[in-house]
Design a protein around this nucleic acid. Structure first.
Lengths: 204, 204
DNA sequence: GTCTATAGGAGGATAGAC
DNA sequence: GTCTATCCTCCTATAGAC
């Protein structure tokens, strides 16, 4: 819980939006859990949507900073991607509720705020795509469609936010390690791995 | 559009839940797009939640049938997983709206319906995990945590439902092929691929 | 089957006192 | 800053006519 009421509203909203979803959460519920009346919420935020926007913005800005930090700490392309994957997973598992909201509650935003957030997200994706693209040029990674793979990799790493349990069988670092290996293997054209050993599945 | 009103309600609801989300969609809107009054909706469904449940159930049952069909058509473990991946991707891209809803609107279900759907989903996941697990036992795939990888693989293949555009640059088969390769490479311990060539990223 | 009418409640947001 | 009181809109669902 935050030390002042605005932080408390943020924390409570993150909990509720995560548990029930943005539309299913009412301002009264947020107020109740904060121990104030719903009218008092409007002293801090002019609308429920502004609370949501604030969560999106903070989460995405922090995630982007974390990616930049990881990339800057690496010398070559492979290390950059390893760090990008590790940091992406790490962020999504340690700030699970916020990232879950950021990934699932875009439709609650006003048009302006939506455009703003999507632009930030695109920028983040482009940075990751640039790393993969460099790896392909340097023949470190197999030549494939970079955009499609970047979506796949990011979604894969994001998915932990859905099922991860902080006190479960595996630690955040364990999972980050598993995904790092899987992604690097998937991108490299490992010597001797036959790519089509079988006729493709029938497609009705 | 369906040929009778019940099918029309289903189709319209899928469109609206996909566009705006379940909670943000009202029964009046569904009725309006169907060309009837909202009261008439209740002649076909006893509640809005029943419409949602029907979408979940149909989608998940069809997906499970499609997986079984793909697995049955394969001789060895690797082919089974290739077919599982292809079929999963194929289904999610061709029935994009329904799978998007099935993956994002679980919270709209009543407790009973929720349990019912989650049980079906778990059964589907177990079938995929069984294939991966068999592959590990037969040393076709590298030994790793099967559950974590299965989540990763399924989420990755599901992700297409979010961004895929039917008339875009790549066809459904193109994308299924890219993901099939990526997943099989990621699971195999390709000869000569160094797994830790670099110190891991710093983790604050 | 589809309609009109309405019950009955909950929602977001504001006004103005303290 | 926080409260009480209230506005107005929209919602899901039902009743009963045609």
């Amino acid at each position: 819980m935050g030390t002042n009421m605005k932080e408390t509203i943020n924390d409570v909203s993150i909990d509720l939006f995560y548990e029930k979803g943005y539309f299913a959460t009412s301002v009264s519920e947020i107020a109740k859990r904060c121990g104030i009346q719903k009218a008092s919420i409007y002293y801090y935020y002019s609308s429920k949507e502004h609370i949501l926007y604030n969560i999106h913005k903070t989460t995405l800005d922090d995630l982007t900073d974390y990616l930049k930090q990881g990339v800057a700490a690496a010398d070559d392309v492979e290390a950059q991607l390893r760090n990008a994957v590790r940091n992406h997973v790490h962020f999504h598992l340690t700030r699970q509720k916020e990232t879950f909201i950021a990934n699932s509650e875009l439709r609650g935003l006003t048009e302006d705020h939506y455009q703003n957030i999507v632009a930030k997200r695109d920028e983040y994706e482009r940075m990751v795509q640039q790393i993969i693209s460099n790896g392909c040029k340097q023949a470190i990674f197999a030549k494939e469609d970079v955009k499609i793979l970047s979506y796949a990799i990011l979604t894969l790493c994001t998915s932990g936010a859905i099922w991860f349990k902080p006190n479960g069988r595996l630690s955040v670092d364990d999972i980050a390690g598993i995904y790092e290996k899987f992604v690097i293997r998937g991108l490299k054209d490992g010597g001797g791995v036959k790519i089509f050993s079988q006729t493709p599945a029938s497609e009705p």
